[in-house]
């Protein structure tokens, strides 16, 4: 499988994905790697509903996603979505050979600090993002492809 975009997005599949990232990734498939969604029938129905009919959607638990990606030797262009930095790190530590992550939405929650409108982080997020960076994976933040790309590590170490 050819992962053309690997994205952190708390909202998983939503408007920005449907209207722009699928086209940008030239994707024929979306993999949502998320334990919560994989075990929630309602979430799964919603995600399926949100996905254009021409795109194949797989909603997998984290471990299953890692296994599936490693075992698939096809050239299918794929958009890979995870919920947060912790899950992204899990994918990297699981041995996936990916060198760039797009950070889309890490939203406001109590106790988080605002970096950008779409980027709110706490200490745990910072630790996880730094670990991803130390593993040699570039982190850029952009909500939509046309936006200016910014370096996440630079932003959070200010």
């Amino acid at each position: 499988m050819n992962i053309t975009v690997f994205r952190i997005d708390e909202r998983l599949i939503h408007g920005q994905i449907v209207t722009s990232w699928i086209a940008y990734a030239n994707a024929n498939r979306i993999i949502v790697a998320d334990d919560k969604a994989a075990n929630d029938e309602f979430q799964k129905t919603l995600l399926q509903m949100a996905t254009p009919k021409t795109i194949e959607l797989q909603i997998l638990g984290m471990d299953e996603a890692i296994r599936t990606i490693k075992e698939d030797t096809s050239d299918t262009k794929t958009l890979l979505l995870v919920r947060g930095p912790k899950e992204a790190l899990q994918m990297i530590e699981g041995g996936l050979d990916l060198n760039e992550i797009n950070v889309g939405n890490i939203n406001m929650k109590k106790g988080k600090t605002k970096i950008l409108g779409n980027l709110w982080i706490d200490d745990e997020d910072v630790r996880n993002l730094n670990k991803i960076h130390e593993a040699g994976v570039a982190l850029e933040v952009r909500t939509v492809p046309n936006e200016r790309s910014q370096d996440v590590i630079k932003l959070i170490s200010k």
């Binding site: 909202r11 939503h14 408007g15 449907v18 309602f42 509903m49």
Partner: peptide
């Protein structure tokens, strides 16, 4: 809602489910 699959759509669907 505006876009099928967008966040407003998804949250609204929680109420219509």
């Amino acid at each position: 809602c505006d876009i099928m699959g967008g966040t407003p759509f998804k949250i609204s669907s929680k109420f219509s489910f």
